[in-house]
Design a protein around this nucleic acid. Structure first.
Length: 488
RNA sequence: GGCCUCAUCGUCUAACGGUUUAGGACGCAGCCCUCUCAAGGCUGAAAUACGGGUUCGAUUCCCGUUGGGGCUACCA
């Protein structure tokens, strides 16, 4: 029996449904997930759709599907439910209304009837005078009667937070230590918009409290809004959660990771053929490391080793070279049969989708190619000759390896192959070496010519592996083809 | 501009005042292996932004400079 009465750890990922899940979002979600699983806590998904103008149809379904693909299973959230739902903010409007009312009563918030045009004009003036744009609190001095009158006349209004004067707002961040803001630097933030929807600041803090969130783990872009949230917690007299602001993911020029400079959505990487294990592994390492030299992790290993105090502070550039290597590492760990299934799926979506290949054949192809690829679809791209006879012959290789006596030599080799009975890889090799000796040419010369004839290219698995996989008949056919089509 | 924040190889990072000629990984180059291409093995080039302190001793602590980033909406 321990003396601690610390509540069960609860964390959340709270995206707004404005499009596809960003890799930065994936990392934030992952750290939340890893932390929850490591600590035996709960991982909650909450949709922050309070900006109706940016809402994208289908974004939530897409997000949920991406989570499912990535293996980020949430304990509470949309289409799953939970004790503290609903988990979609647009379904919680009455909750926010109620809480804003409370703030109004308590005097830590006030109504503002200023038209947008006035605010804009004011902001322009302030910028011109090089002072930081802030609301001038004109509506703070409205009398009760004036407020009621405007309300009655249905003058559009918002509710603003009343930031206290001359106060230092301090909070602890697990990753960054103590952070302090002067209240003067804070604007009287809008909490409730004129359309009746809350702003992020209000909805987010109210929900975090109501949903018993213990740790707020989010991107660094929220660091400067945190004092506003702290103020809100204080106004409600609520206990502060623990904050952890994650370093940002950056473009190669060190600006905040964005579109226009390459792929940023998880879907893009999924479509390119990256394994979910690789993407997860890679983003986990962007801002965190276990302190050992291990670089390749399964999800379970990440869960066991993850800890927030090994998250670092510097933004990390998302560069794909290492991701490719990690993908290769994860791919090579998969059993042949699993790669086979992925290959069949790739074939179904390739130009060879009207051919059928039997599993035993494809399994041989997989075994021959697995060390040579980073992506399953590379099997098709790098060795199309396993799926159709060569359509062309690499001209550089032809120039280097194809001589005028080559066709005759290959013809003899083909006859030699044809005479073999149920040959294996070794028998093909023996036959070739025998032939080379008989013709008094170097083994290599015949090998290279054979490779070109059956595959059309100069690289790939061992040539006897290729020949064995293709089979005698196919190879003989291809040799004759090559002899006819390669002129020199 | 203001506020906040960050600063080790090209990139991801290790080092929590001394065991450091600053370690690992990706990428890059070379060599070995080899029928080619890979994989694998070995080797190499490559970093503490700058300037002051503190200390017997600073990558590590403090201050400043510079540079980067975030925020500065009735967006999240």
């Amino acid at each position: 029996m321990t003396m601690t009465n610390i509540a069960r750890i609860r964390v959340r990922f709270a995206p707004s449904p404005t499009g596809f899940l960003h890799v930065g979002g994936l990392r934030t979600a992952l750290y939340n997930y890893l932390f929850a699983r490591k600590e035996g806590g709960a991982f909650i998904l909450r949709i922050e759709d309070t900006d109706r103008s940016r809402y994208v149809e289908g974004a939530v379904a897409n997000l949920i599907e991406t989570f499912r693909w990535a293996g980020l299973e949430y304990d509470e959230g949309p289409s799953k439910g939970g004790e503290y739902g609903p988990y979609v903010q647009s379904e919680r409007l009455d909750v926010y209304k109620h809480h804003v009312e409370q703030l109004l009563q308590g005097g830590t918030a006030y109504r503002c009837f200023c038209p947008p045009a006035r605010l804009e004009e004011m902001r322009k003036q302030q910028e011109k005078m090089k002072v930081s744009p802030k609301y001038d609190r004109r509506c703070l001095s409205l009398s009760q009667r004036e407020i009621e009158e405007s309300l009655m006349n249905k003058v559009p209004s918002v509710v603003r937070m009343k930031v206290p004067d001359a106060t230092a707002i301090r909070f602890q961040d697990i990753i960054r230590g103590e952070i302090e803001f002067a209240s003067e630097s804070l604007d009287d933030q809008v909490l409730m918009k004129s359309d009746g929807y809350p702003t992020y600041h209000l909805a987010n803090t109210v929900d975090d409290h109501l949903m018993r969130i213990t740790h707020v783990i989010r991107g660094e872009e929220w660091l400067s809004s945190t004092p506003k949230h702290v103020l809100l917690y204080q106004s409600f007299n609520w206990q502060l959660p623990v904050f952890a602001h994650l370093p940002l993911l950056l473009n190669s020029d060190r600006s905040k990771l964005s579109k226009r400079q390459g792929d940023v959505s998880v879907e893009d990487y999924r479509a390119k053929g990256y394994l979910k294990e690789a993407l997860i592994n890679f983003v986990a390492l962007l801002g965190w490391n276990p302190g050992t030299e291990q670089e390749v992790f399964s999800m379970d290993e990440l869960i066991h080793q993850f800890s927030l105090d090994r998250v670092n502070k510097t933004g990390a550039i998302f560069s794909v070279e290492k991701l490719d290597w990690i993908n290769f590492e994860h791919l090579r760990k998969k059993p042949d049969e699993e790669v086979l299934n992925m290959l069949k799926n790739e074939l179904a979506h390739s130009e060879y989708n009207n051919h059928t290949y039997d599993d035993a054949y494809l399994l041989n192809v997989v075994r021959a190619m697995r060390d040579r690829i980073s992506f399953v679809k590379d099997v098709i791209d790098k060795s199309p000759y396993f799926f159709a006879p060569p359509a062309t012959y690499d001209t550089d290789v032809v120039k280097k390896r194809w001589e005028k006596e080559t066709p005759d030599q290959l013809k003899i080799l083909a006859e030699e192959f044809a005479a073999l009975e149920n040959p294996g890889k070794q028998e093909y090799e023996a036959a070739l070496r025998r032939t080379a000796e008989r013709l008094q040419i170097a083994d290599g010369k015949l090998i290279h010519a054979l490779r070109l004839a059956v595959s059309g290219v100069g690289g790939g698995p061992g040539v006897f592996d290729i020949v064995f996989i293709l089979g005698t008949d196919e190879c003989v056919k291809r040799i004759h083809n090559a002899n006819e089509r390669i002129a020199k």
